[in-house]
C-alpha cells in the first residue's frame, strides 16, 4: 500500500470525511474504467463504483492497514460488479468463449476493419471471466498472483485465462499464436 493510502485510511478510520474524498480522488478513475470495461455500460459502472466506495467507507474498520489497499478495494469492486451483472441479468448475454474465437478468426481474415475497431469488438465480446482478468492485468497492472487472490482461484487458472484472452486479441490483429 502506498504511504498516502495508509495515511488516508488511518484518517478515515478516525472519521475524517475529507480523507475519504481524497481516497476517492486517487482511486475513482481506474475504478470507473474497470467497472466500465467489465459491464460496458456507463450507468452500471457508475452505480458499481458508487456501491464499492460506500462499502469501503462502511467497512473501513475491518480493513487491516498492514495489507495493501488496492487488492482489497478491487475485490469489493469485482464482487459488486458480479452482483450487479447478476441482478441486471446480463450474465446470460455473455458470449461463450469458444464462440467468440470463431468470430475472431472471421474478422481477422476480413481485413477491412481498423485494428482498433477489431480490438474493441474482441474485448467487448469476451465473456465476463476473460474480460475481467484482461482488465485487471492490463488496465490495473495487477500481478497474476494478486488477481488469483482477488478472484479466489488458483494462479494457473488465471494464467490460462490470460493466455486465452491475449490469444484472441492477437488473432484479431492478424498476429500468430507464437507471438
Amino acid at each position: 500500500m502506498t504511504s498516502q493510502d495508509k495515511k488516508l485510511i488511518k484518517k478515515i478510520k478516525k472519521g475524517n470525511q475529507r480523507a475519504f474524498k481524497q481516497l476517492y480522488e486517487i482511486h475513482s478513475n481506474y475504478a470507473l474504467r474497470t467497472a466500465y470495461a467489465i459491464t460496458r455500460n456507463q450507468s452500471d459502472a457508475s452505480d458499481i463504483v458508487q456501491e464499492t466506495f460506500i462499502r469501503v467507507y462502511r467497512n473501513i474498520d475491518s480493513f487491516d492497514v498492514s495489507k495493501p489497499f488496492k487488492p482489497w478495494f478491487y475485490q469489493i469492486l469485482i464482487n459488486e460488479s458480479k452482483r450487479y451483472l447478476k441482478k441486471m441479468s446480463q450474465v446470460e448475454m455473455n458470449v461463450e468463449f469458444e464462440h467468440v474465437l470463431d468470430y475472431l478468426f472471421y474478422f481477422s481474415n476480413e481485413g477491412d476493419m481498423s485494428i482498433r475497431e477489431d480490438i474493441e469488438w474482441g474485448i467487448e465480446q469476451l465473456d465476463e471471466i476473460h474480460r475481467l482478468v484482461i482488465t485487471l492485468k492490463y488496465l490495473n497492472g495487477f500481478s497474476v498472483k494478486e488477481i488469483a487472490e482477488m478472484l479466489e482461484v488458483n494462479v494457473n487458472t488465471i494464467k490460462s485465462r490470460l493466455f486465452k484472452g491475449r490469444k484472441q486479441l492477437k488473432l484479431i490483429l492478424g498476429g500468430t499464436n507464437n507471438e
Binding site: R33, Q42, R116, I119, I123, L139
Partner: peptide, 9 residues
Amino acid sequence: HLIDQTESI
C-alpha cells in the same frame, strides 16, 4: 486500448 476505450467513463 483499454485506457482509450474507457476514457469516456
